[in-house]
């Protein structure tokens, strides 16, 4: 779920950089207000690596295939740290794998960063009382939100020369193909948080 270079107009790509910059500034400001920000850096580094490598894991959903996003997991595990972690991961994916693009780095940061913060919010609200339900909603909700933002940006930046009906039909198929991924990521977040709650509850500082 990465916008590649050349898909959206230059103005939209620049606006994406502006939005992602604002989001990163807010996130860093909130991180700075934490009691001990450096304590979370190793965890952020580890999950940045997991996020970076996750794009290589393709899940076949005939007739296409989708790849893991893990924005929900990062949101729940990292909180505000998820925003810089996702931006760094996206940059490395674009440079090393060609996933996404450098001109669309800001937009891709918004596509995945905002859903990660949504998951963080869901976990903060319901993580204590209904941990499994909150984890499921965080994992599923992040994919759902990312697909919605992605589709909205694609349609907003559609060139006049293209057939909008054909692109809308393709986006509908794209969204349907992500339903299994949505469920899979919900289950992943539930499973990871269950293991951590039993084995290393101190890692769930936001739970």
């Amino acid at each position: 779920m990465h916008l590649p270079d050349g898909i959206v107009p230059v103005q939209m790509a620049l606006a994406g950089y502006g939005g992602a910059g604002l989001l990163a500034a807010v996130a860093l400001s909130r991180i700075k207000q934490m009691a001990d920000p450096s304590a979370a850096i190793p965890r952020a580094a580890m999950l940045t690596t997991v996020f970076f490598a996750a794009s290589l894991v393709a899940i076949p959903v005939p007739p296409a295939s989708v790849h893991l996003v893990l924005a929900g997991l990062l949101g729940v595990m990292l909180g505000w740290f998820a925003v810089p972690a996702i931006l760094v991961g996206l940059f490395l994916q674009a440079v090393l794998f060609g996933h996404g693009g450098l001109t669309t780095l800001g937009l891709n940061g918004l596509i995945l960063g905002l859903p990660a913060l949504l998951s963080f919010g869901i976990w903060q609200v319901g993580g204590t009382r209904w941990p499994d339900l909150a984890a499921l909603c965080a994992g599923c909700g992040a994919v759902l939100a990312a697909v919605a933002i992605f589709a909205g940006l694609v349609l907003a930046g559609l060139p006049v020369a293209l057939d909008p009906a054909a692109e809308r039909a393709a986006l509908q198929a794209f969204a349907l193909a992500h339903i299994p991924l949505m469920l899979a990521e919900g289950v992943i977040v539930v499973a990871v948080l269950r293991v951590l709650r039993r084995a290393a509850p101190y890692l769930l500082s936001y739970g």
Binding site: A151, V154, A170
Partner: peptide
């Protein structure tokens, strides 16, 4: 440019 559902290449 060949594109489909927001994915593509130029």
């Amino acid at each position: 440019q060949m594109r489909q559902a927001g994915h593509g290449v130029t």
